[in-house]
């Protein structure tokens, strides 16, 4: 992180509050402000000012159906995530175990205190034991001893060099292995997160359409032999799940809008566009009296949706009691 003194941090407070500085500068200023009695309150006040400016923008209303759709998706995702965690939580992975097993340190590197050196006919001595306990006398030994020592030294040197090369290669290999596994581990974690979210979403959808108190409305039109979609209303959780199977795309600049029709209202349940294969899935959460639903209809409307249906009806279905 950038090291920043008080004057430098103070001069950047406005820019940090406006979020127009590089991340590393923002982090440095915030780190300083967290412990500075002058910069901390000043930054907080400036951030609140930025938000107050945001409150001054003209109020704009999101399309109610789309707003409700976003709300429903958020709540369903959050619920699905909670249920997934509570059902299958095994706690965070033990990273220390993972690292130990990845590096293999436990069996590849032997502590110095346990290392041995083989000398003199296989007898083991630790390095702390003196290797030259016996005095050598060149006068009393013949040249063969000198020759032997030279050979032994050469062999030791070669062995040491070989050992060094092997350890270096081993270390490099381990580093590459760790890097590779770290990358793979991150990819796996990312994929795991995605799959977990997908499974949770599917679980939530299954729960929404398979409860004991689910009303199903088949959606069709005059030219279709089979239903083109179905609306599942889970009257216990107030979740609405609509699935379409073979719906043509709306015209350019238009969108489909779903309506829940009661005796006295046509309630927008959101807008959608089917995929190229005509399929679409839409969720909403809306509380409706158990027997209030009379029909479900889909109309083609201008992009963004409308407060009340204006366009041609594409499919509809009557809710039977």
């Amino acid at each position: 992180m950038i090291d920043m003194n008080h004057e430098e941090a103070f001069s950047e407070l406005a820019a940090v509050a406006l979020d127009v500085v590089p991340t590393e500068v923002g982090d440095a200023v915030r780190a300083h402000a967290a412990v500075c009695p002058e910069c901390g309150p000043e930054l907080t006040a400036m951030e609140a000012t930025v938000v107050a400016l945001g409150e001054l923008v003209p109020s704009q209303q999101m399309n109610r159906g789309r707003g409700a759709g976003i709300r429903s998706r958020l709540v369903m995702r959050a619920r699905a995530e909670r249920e997934t965690h509570s059902a299958g939580s095994e706690g965070p992975p033990d990273l220390s175990r993972g690292v130990a097993s990845l590096t293999g340190l436990g069996h590849r590197i032997t502590p110095v205190s346990q290392r041995t050196l083989v000398v003199e006919g296989g007898k083991q001595k630790t390095p702390s034991q003196p290797l030259a306990a016996r005095p050598l006398s060149y006068e009393s030994k013949d040249r063969s001893l000198v020759k032997w020592l030279a050979m032994a030294a050469t062999l030791a040197l070669v062995a040491t060099a070989a050992q060094l090369m092997r350890v270096t290669a081993d270390r490099n290999s381990m580093r590459a292995d760790i890097a590779l596994r770290d990358t793979a581990s991150l990819d796996t974690a990312s994929r795991n997160d995605s799959l977990t979210a997908l499974v949770a979403e599917r679980d939530a959808m299954i729960a929404a359409i398979s409860g004991s108190d689910v009303k199903v409305v088949a959606l069709t039109n005059e030219s279709a032999r089979q239903p083109l979609g179905r609306m599942f209303w889970n009257r216990t959780s107030n979740d609405w799940t609509m699935v379409t199977y073979d719906l043509r795309s709306p015209r350019p600049g238009r969108t489909y809008q779903v309506w829940l029709i009661t005796d006295d209202a046509k309630i927008s349940a959101g807008t959608f566009k089917p995929g190229a294969d005509g399929k679409a899935v839409m969720h909403a959460n809306y509380a409706l009296a158990r027997n209030a639903l009379r029909a479900v209809a889909i109309t083609e409307e201008p992009e963004g949706g409308v407060p009340a249906p204006t366009g041609p009806m594409v499919v509809s279905g009557t809710a039977t009691s």
């Binding site: 409150e55 109020s59 209303q61 999101m62 709300r71 709540v75 959050a78 509570s86």
Partner: peptide, 24 residues
């Protein structure tokens, strides 16, 4: 505490202000 209904309530309270700002 993983209460998703609180997320819904927070959304109801601040969606309009947030949408107005980001739309602007």
């Amino acid at each position: 505490d993983a209460d998703e209904t609180a997320l819904g309530a927070l959304y109801d309270r601040w969606m309009r202000s947030l949408y107005s700002l980001v739309m602007h």
